[in-house]
Amino acid sequence: MLFPSRYSLERWSYTLQRITGVVVTLYFVLHVIETGNFVGGPSVWYVPPYDYARAYYEEIREFLHNPVFDVGLVIIGWMVAFHAVNGLRLTLAHFGITLGRPSRVEPEAPPRSFSPFQRAIFWISIALAVFAVVYSLNALMGVLAA
């Protein structure tokens, strides 16, 4: 059931939307905690010459300077882009927009709910997700520059 190899694109979008949603949620929780630690509390910033702030900054930057986090961020970039655009597609569909209209059945015609517009947004979400990967690879690792 997890890998719907014989089913249509919409089924893949359903599975991917769930997986990306869960993973991005995990990232979101960690991101809120990490940025909260990063500012280190108000007192850090009140004492010039801000030695505490500098220490916090260095400490956490060292912790985050790790290929595992970099690879993770690239994957998160892919997932956020996909989930966002595919989620927009699903919202439109759930409100009955961008789907075909019901009609008399044409034999062998693809279902009206798999409209070209819907399919197009799905592929745009994939394309944007790939772009996000390229962008984040470039930003984090300088793969393209090398």
């Binding site: 979101f28 929780v29 809120v32 940025t35 909260g36 990063f38 500012v39 509390g41 108000p42 910033w45």
Partner: peptide
Amino acid sequence: ALGLFLVVYGTRTILIAYNI
């Protein structure tokens, strides 16, 4: 509970950054 924690902790971060 998790949602409340995230909002409170995140708000704290934003307020600190805003007040620096």
